[in-house]
Simulated scan of single mutants.
Amino acid sequence: MAEQSPNWVELPPDVTAAILSRLGAAEVLESAQKVCTTWRRICQDPAMWRTVDMCNLGHFSTSNNYEAMTMHAVDRSSGQLAAISVGFFCTDALLAYISDRSSQLRLLRLVCCDDISDIGWMEAVKKLPLLEELHLYYTSISKEAIGVVGRCCPLLKSLKLNNQGSRRPYIDCDDEALAIAENMPGLHHLQLFGNKITKDGLQAILDNCPHLESLDLRQCFNVNFGGNLGKRCSQQIKNVRRPYDSTEDYEFDTDILDYESFDEDHPTSFSDIDFMSEDDEHYVFSGGSNVSYDEDYAEYCLMIS
C-alpha cells in the first residue's frame, strides 16, 4: 500500500503560520498565499508580517515591482511591523512609507541602498523612536545623519555600518566613528566591517560608549591593536573582532580592494552585481528606481488580489 502524502492544508493554523513565517515576503505574496483559501487567510493575519524580509527576493517576483511589494507587506502588518530588511531598491520615498506606518519598528536592515539622502534618513528616524537595531550594509549614511539617528532613537543598542574592506594607502576617516561616539552612548553592539576608522576614532568610541559588549572591526586596516589600545579593548569589551580576524562567518563577499585593482574612474561605485557571495541564491543590483508609488502600488495590489 502506497504511503499517503500529508495534507498540508489540514495542519493546525498556528503550525501553518509558523511554517509560512519562515518564507520571505516575496515568496508569501507571490506564491504561498495563492495555494489555497486557508493559506491566504493565514497570510492576511497582521501577525504574519511583524518581520518582513525584502532582501531575499528569490525568483518569486513576476512583476519586479519591489517597492510596491514592500509597501503591501508593510500595510499587511497593520502597524505591528517590528523588523524589516530591504534591498537595493530602497529610496527616500520608500523609507518614508515604512517609517510613517511602522512606529513599533525595532530593527531596520538595509543592503546596498545608495538612493537614500540625508534628508530621507533624518525624516524617517524621527518617526522610529523604538528602533533598537540599525544594520546597514554597503549603504551610505553621513555623519550628520548618524547624529540624528543617535538623538532620535535613544533605545538603539546595535549598529552595523559595514562596507568593503580596502588596503588603499592614505585613506582614513573617523567621521562616522566620532559621530557614533558623540551620539550613541547606549550602544551594546557595534560592527564597522571595512571601515576607514583609525586609532583616534576607536579611542573616542571606547571613551563614550561604556556599555559596548561586542565590537567588530574586521577589515578595518587603519587600526593597530598593539599596545595600550588593544589591551583596553580586551579589558573593556567582552567580544572583540580585530582587523585580520577570520571573515568566514560574514554573510557577504569579503574581497578586499587594494590600490592595484581599484578602478580609479569609479572610486565610490560597484559593479552591477554587488557584494554577494557564491552561495547566495539572488543578486543585488546597483542603481535606483524612478517609481510612481501610487500607480505601481495600486497595480500590484490588483495583480495579487
Results as ranks from 00 to 15, higher is better:
L215A: 09
V148L: 07
S166L: 02
G186F: 05
E133M: 04
Y97R: 01
S103M: 14
F275N: 12
S77Q: 02
N183D: 10
C152A: 14
I237P: 03
D100N: 15
V284Q: 04
H266Q: 10
R167N: 06
L23G: 05
V9W: 07
M69D: 01
L108R: 03
A181F: 00
I84V: 08
Y138Q: 01
D92M: 14
T38P: 03
M48F: 09
L202F: 07
K143D: 15
I171W: 09
S234G: 10
D263C: 13
A32G: 06
L217I: 00
N228I: 09
S99H: 14
K127L: 15
D258T: 14
R109Y: 15
N64M: 03
L134I: 01
R40V: 05
Y137M: 06
C301M: 07
K34G: 04
E133Q: 08
S21C: 11
A25K: 01
A47M: 13
H266S: 11
Q235A: 04
A177W: 07
H72D: 08
S117K: 00
R22E: 01
P210K: 02
M69F: 00
L20V: 14
N224I: 08
D118I: 09
I197Y: 07
Y297E: 07
Q203F: 01
L192H: 03
L110W: 00
D53S: 00
V125I: 13
V149W: 09
D263T: 14
D14Q: 10
A179Q: 05
A93S: 11
T70V: 06
S214T: 15
L110E: 02
M122N: 15
M122F: 00
A177M: 07
W49Q: 00
M184P: 01
Y283K: 15
V74Y: 07
S78P: 01
H72W: 09
R50K: 15
E281V: 10
P6L: 02
K196E: 05
Y250I: 15
Q4H: 06
D216A: 07
P13T: 09
L187M: 04
C173I: 06
S142M: 03
T62H: 12
Y250G: 14
D216W: 08
F270I: 03
D280N: 05
R76H: 07
D265Q: 15
V35T: 14
V125P: 06
E248V: 13
A17M: 14
L155R: 06
A25M: 00
A93Y: 03
S292T: 05
T247E: 09
S102R: 06
I197P: 04
E3C: 12
P169R: 06
D100Y: 11
C152K: 13
A298N: 11
C43Q: 08
N224M: 05
W121K: 12
V125Y: 09
V223L: 03
A68N: 09
D265Y: 13
D216Y: 09
D115L: 04
